[in-house]
């Protein structure tokens, strides 16, 4: 990648030296790409490099192995929403999860579209319910794109296509209500809104959304974030705690 002009979502910013910053952008065609922004800590550039902002980016590197120099220009700022507790927790978690789990320079166009739509929903949806389901689906898609997808097409035990109510923690496959009856305590509840056959127009209830977060959280922690230094999930815990406080 000696030269690349694209748009990207700012996912992480790490200070480098006294004035610069190493920024990782999630781009539609090249996935997560890192670059060094000279003067990234300056008064002019800091408001542009807020995670979740959409920027026009120009990467320039001498060879493909070098960390590219990066210049950015703001396209869409999502900074006005960082002052709102729930929105800021959601923006933080969505970008942190992306930066923490995706390998660099692998294209994930579906994931890019999903993240872009999710961030817009967080900022513009009239209520948290508008984006909470999108967040669960984004996490599910991310698991699938990284090879840890859940198979929710049919029951793992009986092959049954309907009345799917649980997910097996070991196989990550759906289990029907009847087949899972005796193992209920060991299975993860599967909220109906995640089933491919469910009417997309039907708005899920809050308990279903919370169950969706519990389901994806289990696999994120076990499959993607188990070996990571530090507690990446803490941002998610805060976001869910705020959602639950809103319900009380």
């Amino acid at each position: 990648m000696p030269q690349l002009s694209t748009q990207g979502i700012v996912c992480s910013v790490r200070h480098h030296g006294e004035h610069g910053a190493i920024v990782r952008l999630f781009t539609p065609d090249d996935g997560l790409v890192a670059g060094y922004v000279r003067g990234g800590r300056s008064r002019r550039i800091r408001p542009i490099l807020i995670p979740s902002n959409l920027v026009a980016a120009e990467f320039r590197a001498r060879t493909a192995d070098h960390l590219a120099g990066l210049t950015v220009e703001l396209v869409t700022s999502r900074a006005p929403w960082i002052g709102e507790p729930l929105a800021s927790a959601a923006l933080d978690w969505a970008t942190t999860l992306t930066a923490a789990t995706l390998p660099e320079e692998n294209a994930y166009p579906r994931l890019y579209s999903a993240l872009s739509a999710l961030l817009d929903a967080i900022c513009h949806a009239p209520s948290a319910r508008g984006w909470a389901t999108a967040m669960v689906r984004f996490e599910l898609l991310l698991l699938a794109e990284l090879g840890f997808g859940l198979d929710l097409s049919c029951c793992a035990a009986t092959g049954q296509l309907d009345d799917l109510a649980y997910v097996s923690p070991r196989s990550a496959r759906a289990v029907s209500r009847g087949a899972g009856q005796g193992y209920k305590a060991r299975l993860l509840p599967l909220p109906p809104f995640l089933l491919p056959s469910t009417d997309a127009q039907r708005r899920p209830e809050w308990p279903d959304i919370v169950a969706g977060f519990a389901l994806t959280g289990y696999y994120l922690e076990r499959s993607l974030l188990a070996d990571r230094r530090g507690d990446v999930m803490s941002g998610r815990t805060q976001m869910i705690a705020r959602l639950q406080r809103m319900l009380e």
Binding site: I82, P85, S88, A89, D92, T95
Partner: peptide, 15 residues
């Protein structure tokens, strides 16, 4: 600070 992390910290303390 008026950054995402700074504001996340402020919201956490406010709670």
């Amino acid at each position: 600070n008026a950054t995402l992390e700074g504001q996340t910290t402020a919201h956490f303390i406010a709670e």
